Computed example of a mutant assay.
Amino acid sequence: MSVLSIAAIQVDAAAEGNFDLIEQEIRSVAKRFPWVIMVALGELVIHGASLARAEPAGGDTERRLQALARETGLWIIPGSLYERRGDVVFNTTPVINPQGEIVGRYDKLFPFLPYEQGVASGVDYPVFDIPGVGTVGVAICFDMWFPEAIRTLCAKGAEVIILPTMTNTIDRDVELAIARANAAISQCYFVDINVAGAQGNGRSVVYGPGGELLHEAGAGREVMAFELDLEHVRRCRDRGWNGLGQIMKSFRDAPAGYPLHADPASRQASMKELGPLSMPQRQGGAAKAVNEGEGRTSKPRLSIIE
């Protein structure tokens, strides 16, 4: 039986400066649950949502995480980090194996615009294998609103999707529905780890390959340690969940094409009537008074990440 033993840690975090706390949480998991082979955390949980804390690949934060992986013998999915490459910043999740090696980096495909300004979009869909267990894919928060992204990872073999999240807004309940739908339509385990405390409103979730809820966390700190049976995913993809739809096979075999997905320029031209992706502004007299009185429109600060 192929089992992924994982602890998803929903951290009661400060707005920034959480590295010592996270190290403590990971060491505690390694001691309390010696059968766990992987830990995963929420988006940007270590340093918070500040582009000023962006580091180069292989920077101090990654090296410290690599040392922690070697110390604990765990796979570490450390939420995400702002990573600078030249003049460009990505929202990146490094995947670190128990030997402390970075086996892959996932760049967030869909920064949460217009709020997550200054962050570039990723273009790759990396998946990674855990020897003797199975294949895992990573996406980040707002990416799950685009089922094409999750489906692509699963079509490349991912049986589990790990989704670090930073949500502190009223749409968390909607995200739970989207997470469930992604699990069902791509027939995978879907592990959505939100942050808590000053960073987010919690309610991390784990869904199975039929969309079945395995666990929903509360709003505060919670360590969710569980075993994912990847043979169950393989059976669902082979026979259908409870003998019902063989969704991934149907997607593979159907003659229907998706022309707008194949060509970004065609997609953009087809949907141009939607207008620009811009920050919502105040409506009515209040907005006019602010803009005319100040002689300018103030630039909003980054405060929401999804």
Rank of each mutant, 00 (worst) to 15 (best):
M1E: 07
S2D: 05
L4V: 01
A15L: 13
G17W: 00
S28Y: 11
S28G: 08
A30H: 11
K31E: 06
I46F: 04
I46W: 04
I46Y: 03
S50I: 00
R53I: 00
T61N: 12
E62T: 13
R63I: 08
R64G: 07
R70E: 15
G73L: 08
G73E: 07
S80I: 06
L81N: 12
E83T: 15
E83D: 05
R85W: 13
G86S: 12
N91S: 04
T92C: 12
P94A: 08
P98I: 07
P98M: 07
L109D: 01
F110N: 15
Y115N: 13
E116A: 00
E116I: 00
V119A: 01
A120R: 14
A120T: 06
G122K: 15
F128D: 02
I130R: 01
P131A: 07
G132K: 14
V133E: 06
T135M: 06
I140M: 08
C141W: 03
C141E: 03
C141V: 07
D143G: 04
W145T: 10
A149C: 03
A155H: 12
G157I: 09
T165L: 08
N168Q: 10
T169S: 12
E175N: 13
N182V: 00
N182S: 11
A183E: 01
A183F: 05
A184F: 10
Y189E: 01
V195H: 05
G197F: 03
A198N: 14
A198H: 09
V206S: 06
G210T: 02
G210V: 06
E212Y: 04
L213P: 15
H215Q: 02
E216F: 00
G220M: 05
H232K: 14
H232A: 05
V233W: 03
R237M: 00
W241H: 15
N242V: 09
G243K: 14
G245C: 04
Q246T: 14
R252F: 05
R252D: 02
A254H: 04
P255S: 01
P259E: 01
P264G: 12
P264C: 05
R267H: 12
R267L: 10
A269H: 10
M271E: 12
K272L: 08
L274G: 15
G275Q: 08
L277M: 13
S278G: 12
M279N: 09
P280M: 10
Q281D: 11
A286R: 15
A289P: 04
V290T: 13
E292D: 14
E294F: 12
E294R: 15
T297F: 02
L302E: 03
S303C: 04
